[in-house]
Nucleic acid binder design. Structure first.
Length: 591
RNA sequence: GGUCCUGUGGUGCAGUUUGGAGUGCACGCCGCCCUGUCAAGGCGGAGGCCGCGGGUUCAAAUCCCGUCAGGACCGCCA
């Protein structure tokens, strides 16, 4: 046994014990005679005192940062006046009898304490094994493990069966770009890595598993973002003989358990909003409910306006509290931002005393219209009113983006100012079945092609493009503070309905049979009605950790360009390896 | 595919706007001093391809072009 205690576990009550601890040197304070060491292990930091007169003093001048030590000594209360209230172990210290240097260390390339907060991320990733020693990373990974533990406990308790699904599967060109793996035994053929276990979990329902879950790795070859990696983890759930509400209830219990475990606070009742309402009020399908600044329809105010720009499909506005004094360049920046988001322009108005509007376009607006803007938006002196007119979807999305730019609070669940931190979960329901309809009248699915249409809208499936876009699905998203945590739906469980949807999507019978024949076949043998959900573990953990970026909660993440500074991946394959796989480079790669 | 930001001793930054000697700050590192510190303190020292390449100029960390790397975003992400 190399140690008797964890360094961070010792308290005043342990005084008098003779103990052995192991860990890394976090700091060394050499007074010429007595030497203080801060010894760090997974549990925390403990002060070691080395008296030059003891055997432990022999090597003390050699010891440097990140040396690995085994220290034996007696726990003793710190002398009066030298207690450290900032340290959980601050009442005690170890008077070292013996210090064994288990390993030496070069000076670390960056500080491993809080000073590392600003260190270049690629340097941290190149030496991730050092970065992981830092308290912040230790906390994040332990938080992550706790979230996994909590959700598993709920799923287990509710009789869900954990089933693993394959990583090497057939490529399906729908949706995200697949990562592919060449087959050695079948030269010229490829496996794909799963974007999600979607089809398998539906097959598990046909297979009578009744309730399935998996903490599943998903892979998508799409560009990376602060909240997106090639690889990510989902709590994947599927339930037979269940409706949307059953699924949402289970997911809410799993998320609640994770949040309670992490923060001690329940998420409470999760409210719902329809997709339609979310788009109209927040200009997005993942609304951040931590603040207001809702989008207001000004169509009524400008119903018979003379102002050309407002004779549009939709006129919508937001009122930015207290921004009326913003500089012209700031406001011009908002105009540029709106244009870059696809707006024709952005009308802005400063609200002055008495509801007087100061704006370049004021002269084009009647007194009634100006008064209507102020009244409808509830604007007061000092506010800035922003209005976008044009296509309704565009106007909503542009204002939704501006709303976030101007109002989004930082990601932070810590207790601030003694008040409760803000977690605003919301279910977004009644998504449209189709995202858009192309020129030939062919729709693309908003969720995935296995989503059950809303029963009231089935008749619209034979309709015009406009009617197709109005078809609602039985799909639902869980949103937290503007982050899409996950989505789910009631699935199609009948071969005839699934074939009809495939046909609508332009997948003819032969193609459907080739790609998804196994699913359609399975549906011929008594597939139960089923529904499911999947939510992103990385995103939930990041939000619970107060991180803006999921790389901070992933042990070994990729950079934005998809490379790994630690291992050097991706890299070239040697010619022998390529030949074995039946592959040849079509062109000399760049670099 | 696109827009924007960043790149200066091991680390974090200032210096770039308005070209004039690698000039500065903090930390770390090395040496010496120091027996109660808490990211100890004092004194001294070492350490630089100003990401890389090209151009303009008498002169480039600084201006221009290109490129690489990292980041934020748009597209993309059923």
């Amino acid at each position: 046994m190399m140690r008797t205690h964890y360094a961070g576990s010792l308290r005043g009550g342990d005084a008098g014990s003779i103990i052995t601890v192991c860990g890394w040197v976090a700091a060394r304070r050499d007074h010429g005679g007595v030497v203080f060491l801060d010894l760090r292990d997974a549990s925390g930091i403990l002060q070691i005192v080395i008296d030059p007169a003891t055997p432990a003093g022999a090597d003390s001048s050699r010891i440097r940062s990140e040396f690995v030590l085994q220290v034996t000594g007696v726990v003793r209360p710190r002398p009066g006046g030298t207690l450290n209230v900032d340290l959980p172990t601050g009442e005690v210290e170890i008077a070292a009898d013996s210090v064994v240097i288990l390993n030496e260390s070069e000076p670390p390339p960056f500080p491993l304490n809080d000073r590392a907060d600003g260190v270049d991320e690629s340097l941290r990733l190149r030496h991730r094994y050092l970065d992981l020693r830092r308290g912040a990373m230790q906390r994040n990974l332990r938080l992550r493990a706790g979230v996994n533990r909590s959700v598993r406990a709920v799923m287990d308790a509710e009789n869900f069966v954990e089933v693993e699904t394959p990583m090497l599967i057939a490529s399906t060109p729908e949706g995200a770009r697949d990562f592919v793996v060449p087959s050695r035994l079948h030269p010229g053929e490829f496996y794909a890595l799963p974007q999600s276990p979607q089809l398998f979990k539906q097959l598990l329902m046909v297979g009578g598993l009744d309730r399935y879950y998996q903490v599943a790795r998903c892979l998508r070859d799409e560009d990376l973002r602060a909240d997106r990696q090639f690889e990510f983890m989902q709590l994947d759930v599927e339930m037979s003989f269940a409706d949307a509400q059953d699924v949402m209830d289970v997911v809410a219990r799993a998320v609640d358990a994770a949040v309670v475990g992490a923060t001690g606070r329940s998420i409470g009742e999760v409210p719902s909003i329809t997709w339609q309402d979310s788009m109209e009020r927040f200009g997005t399908d993942k609304p951040d409910l931590r603040f207001g600044m809702e989008l207001i329809d000004l169509g009524g105010v400008f119903a018979s306006t003379e102002f050309r720009a407002f004779q549009a499909d939709a006129v919508k506005g937001i009122c930015v509290t207290g921004m009326g004094e913003a500089s012209r360049s700031t406001v011009d920046g908002l105009v540029d931002r709106a244009k870059s988001l696809g707006a024709q322009g952005l009308v802005w108005m400063r609200v002055r005393d008495g509801g007087v509007l100061e704006a370049p376009v004021a002269k084009f607006l009647s007194a009634d219209e100006q008064a209507g803007v102020v009244a409808t938006l509830g604007a007061v002196t000092g506010d800035l009113v922003l209005i976008v007119a044009g296509d309704r979807r565009m106007a909503n999305e542009v204002l939704g983006a501006l709303r976030l730019d101007l109002g989004k609070p930082p990601v932070d669940f810590s207790e601030t100012d003694g008040g409760p931190a803000l977690m605003r979960f919301v279910w977004v329901t009644d998504f449209p079945l189709f995202e858009k309809v192309d020129a030939s009248g062919r729709p693309t699915p908003a969720h995935h092609p296995f989503t059950m249409p809303h029963p009231d809208d089935l008749a619209l499936l034979d309709g015009t493009a406009e009617e197709l876009l109005a078809v609602r699905s039985q799909a639902y998203d869980l949103v937290l503070n503007g982050w899409e945590l996950g989505s789910g739906s009631v699935r199609i469980h009948r071969a005839d309905v699934q074939s009809r949807i495939f046909a609508l999507l332009g997948i003819d019978a032969q193609e459907a049979q080739e790609r998804f024949g196994f699913l359609l076949d399975a549906f011929k043998f008594g597939a139960p009605p089923h529904a499911g959900f999947a939510f992103g573990i990385d995103r939930l953990v990041a939000l619970l950790a107060g991180e803006e970026n999921i790389r901070e909660v992933i042990a070994f993440p990729k950079t934005q360009s998809g490379s790994d500074p630690l291992t050097g991946a991706p890299g070239p394959l040697d010619p022998t390896h390529l030949r074995e796989l039946g592959l040849a480079m079509a062109a000399k790669p760049k670099k």
